[in-house]
C-alpha cells in the first residue's frame, strides 16, 4: 500500500529512554519510509507508547536520535555540536507531527470545531477565515459535519476520537502517530475509528500506529513491528511477523492476543 512520496521519512536511531532506574527503551532503531503504515505491537509496558512519545519529543531521549525528513527532532546541529532546541522551536517541529492519544485529550471547554481550528491558527499563524472551512471539511471527512458545535462531553467516545483525529490532521502533518487509538473505546465503537484511520492510510501519510487490533495490523500495515522489553524483537510485513513469527516471544504474544 506504500506510495512513492518525498515527505514523512521517520528515522529512529539507537534510542534509549529511562524513567528513574527503569529502562523503557534500550536501543531502538526504526526507519519508516514516507507514506508507509507501520503498526507497533507488543505487551503492555514494552515501551510502545514511549517510542511514539519520543518521536514527537513529548519525552526527551537519553541517548540516540529521532529525525523526520532529515531534521533532528529536539536538536539543531552546528558543526560538531548538537544544541538542544528551545521549546518554541520544538513546538514548531511538532506541528508537522500529528498525535492521537489513547484518551482523546480533546479540550473539553471548546467545541469540536474550535478544537480543530486551535492549532492551525495559534501554532501556525494561519488566518481563521482560511482555517475554519478546512476544519469543517476535516470534521466532515471523519463523519462529524453535524457535530461541529458540540462539546466533547456531548459526544460518544468514538466521536471524540474522530474529532481528535481531525484535530491532529489540521496542521497538515507529514507524519501521524496513533497511541492505542481504540483502547479506551467500547467494542462497538472501535470500528468507526478504525475506518477513519484506514481511510487516512490510503492517502499516503506516514503513519505509526500502536495498537492491539491485530486484524487492523494485518489489513493495513506495510510493516509490523513487535517490541518487547524496550527492544524491537522483529519487524517485517504482516504476513511474516503475524503469521510466521521468527521469535519465541512474538509467538507467545500473538498466541495470547489472537
Amino acid at each position: 500500500m506504500s506510495t512513492t512520496q518525498s515527505e514523512g521519512l521517520v528515522e529512529v536511531h539507537g534510542v534509549h529512554k529511562s524513567f528513574g532506574t527503569l529502562e523503557v527503551l534500550s536501543g531502538v532503531d526504526l526507519v519508516v519510509k514516507p507514506g508507509e503504515v507501520t503498526v507497533v505491537i507488543g505487551p503492555s509496558g514494552s515501551g510502545k507508547s514511549t517510542l511514539l512519545r519520543v518521536i514527537n519529543h513529548l519525552e526527551k531521549v537519553d541517548r540516540g536520535f529521532v529525525a523526520i525528513d532529515g531534521d533532528l527532532i529536539g536538536y539543531a546541529r552546528k558543526g560538531d555540536t548538537l544544541r538542544e532546541l528551545k521549546e518554541k522551536d520544538i513546538l514548531r517541529q511538532r506541528t508537522r507531527i500529528g498525535f492521537v492519544f489513547q484518551s482523546f485529550n480533546l479540550f473539553p471547554h471548546l467545541t469540536a470545531l474550535e478544537n480543530v481550528v486551535e492549532a492551525p491558527v495559534s501554532a501556525q499563524g494561519r488566518p481563521r477565515s482560511e482555517v475554519e472551512p478546512e476544519a469543517r471539511a476535516l470534521l466532515a471527512r471523519v463523519g462529524l459535519a453535524d457535530k461541529a458545535d458540540a462539546r466533547p462531553r456531548q459526544l460518544s467516545g468514538g466521536q471524540q476520537q474522530r474529532v481528535a483525529i481531525a484535530r491532529a490532521l489540521a496542521t497538515r502533518p507529514k507524519v501521524l502517530l496513533f497511541d492505542e487509538p481504540t483502547s479506551a473505546l467500547d467494542p462497538e465503537l472501535v470500528g468507526e475509528v478504525l475506518d477513519v484511520i484506514k481511510d487516512l492510510a490510503r492517502t499516503g501519510t506516514t503513519m505509526i500506529v500502536v495498537t492491539h487490533e491485530i486484524g487492523f495490523a494485518r489489513e493495513l500495515a506495510d510493516t509490523v513491528v513487535f517490541i518487547d522489553a524496550g527492544r524491537i524483537v522483529e519487524q517485517g510485513p504482516p504476513a511474516q511477523v503475524l503469521d510466521h513469527p521468527a521469535h519465541e516471544r512474538t509467538k507467545a504474544f500473538l498466541d495470547k492476543v489472537l
Binding site: L58, F101, N105, F107, E118, A119, A123
Partner: peptide, 27 residues
C-alpha cells in the same frame, strides 16, 4: 487540570503562553 490537556496542547505545537491562557486556565 488533567495532564493530558497539557500534553495535547504541546503535541499540537500550540505556543506555551497560549497553552496556558486558552487551554489550561479556562479549565
Amino acid at each position: 487540570v488533567d495532564q493530558g490537556q497539557h500534553e495535547a496542547a504541546a503535541a499540537l505545537g500550540i505556543p506555551r503562553a497560549r497553552q496556558q491562557l486558552r487551554i489550561v486556565l479556562p479549565q
